[in-house]
Design a protein around this nucleic acid. Structure first.
Lengths: 191, 191
DNA sequence: CAATCTCTTTTACATTTGTTAAATAATCAG
DNA sequence: CTGATTATTTAACAAATGTAAAAGAGATTG
């Protein structure tokens, strides 16, 4: 329960929520442990759950012509959702996978969205979280659109050194939109 | 006023809003006409306004080492905001520019966000709009991350044929993350 | 309608990144 | 500890994209 309280404090720092609302959210939360390299959610499922990483590291990935592509990394406190499924109701062609042994908090979407009716401030909190995710996505778009692979790698090291320390390079390469061979070359050129 | 009503109907189709809320939003709306190639918002300003295109075409652009990069196209009913500024309060290094003579509806953010207090359903509407934008951004990320330039161009033609008909190729090229020369080559190869 | 812009394509060459395969290096399970 | 697996780097060559410059098309204006 310690973890859950810490998580709720983290949320209310984004946008304040009443004690009642906190309790209501708490009642929806469950905790999940997923072992390294196992899937929390599989390709083909429709996403109806909102996850947060409590401890560990996770990613969203999909397959493009047999190649495993990482779309997103999540660390402590990061939300991890397959938005293109959750917000459209369509099945997702992406998976959520634990990179290391990882603990997630899961909040089922339907009762959470129902909470929005009773607790306006929960909807606000969630809106702000989506706004943040949107800003992150836009910043990544900018980096993929017109930065070179080397610039993107340097930016990633700067923004999240943990990524480079803890995550296999093959995942980092596809996250950057390049092959692992290319990333190796870049790393060799830098140092 | 005809345009304004049409716009509000469009909004309430996304998420229903009461007549009262509609009136309140209406009172915040103003209409702006921007001539082709002129800026609605300039680089360096902090974005405190939410715009929608009523008629015409617009884009968000920025400069990367003197090169004009298009980040986003907006057509009729599309929202156009510089989210990385509006949602963070930081100045934007991006501009909003009319591609053709364009009519915008402008809603100042501060009073709109205040409306959220009184009219829960307006916050919900806005949340859903942000969710849609987020999904769009994720889909574009996927396309930039691991599709070839040709695939991206074909997808764009399929998704918005209007883009290719109405927008200068130099803008389309940078939107796709390639040079105009490259886009010309791809077009030549296809036909 | 001629002159001037602007937009688009083409060419030639440079650079980056991809592909495939092999060689190391690091990690893991028995 | 050791063989097996997984991760990372390197090499050689192919393909895609960038750069710079010029030519051709189309639009605009006096």
């Amino acid at each position: 329960m310690e973890q859950l309280n810490k998580f709720l404090n983290y949320l209310s720092a984004i946008s304040p929520i009443s004690e009642k609302a906190k309790e209501a959210i708490k009642n929806l939360c469950s905790t999940l442990h997923i072992k390294k390299n196992n899937n929390l959610q599989s390709i083909g499922q429709t996403c109806r759950t909102i996850y947060f990483v409590v401890e560990g590291t996770a990613r969203i990935n999909y397959f493009k012509e047999d190649k495993d592509v990482t779309e997103y990394f999540a660390f402590e406190n990061d939300m991890i959702i397959r938005a293109e499924s959750l917000f459209t109701g369509r099945p997702s062609h992406k998976a959520i996978q634990a990179i290391s042994d990882t603990t997630f908090i899961a909040i089922p979407a339907t009762p959470l969205f129902e909470l929005f009716e009773k607790h306006h401030e929960v909807e606000r909190l969630f809106r702000k979280i989506v706004e943040r995710s949107y800003v992150d996505a836009i910043n990544r778009l900018e980096s993929l659109q017109f930065h070179t692979a080397e610039e993107r790698y340097q930016a990633l090291i700067k923004k999240s050194p943990a990524v480079v320390r803890e995550i296999p390079l093959k995942h980092i390469a596809s996250y950057l939109g390049i092959t692992q061979v290319s990333l190796s070359r870049i790393r060799a050129a830098i140092s």
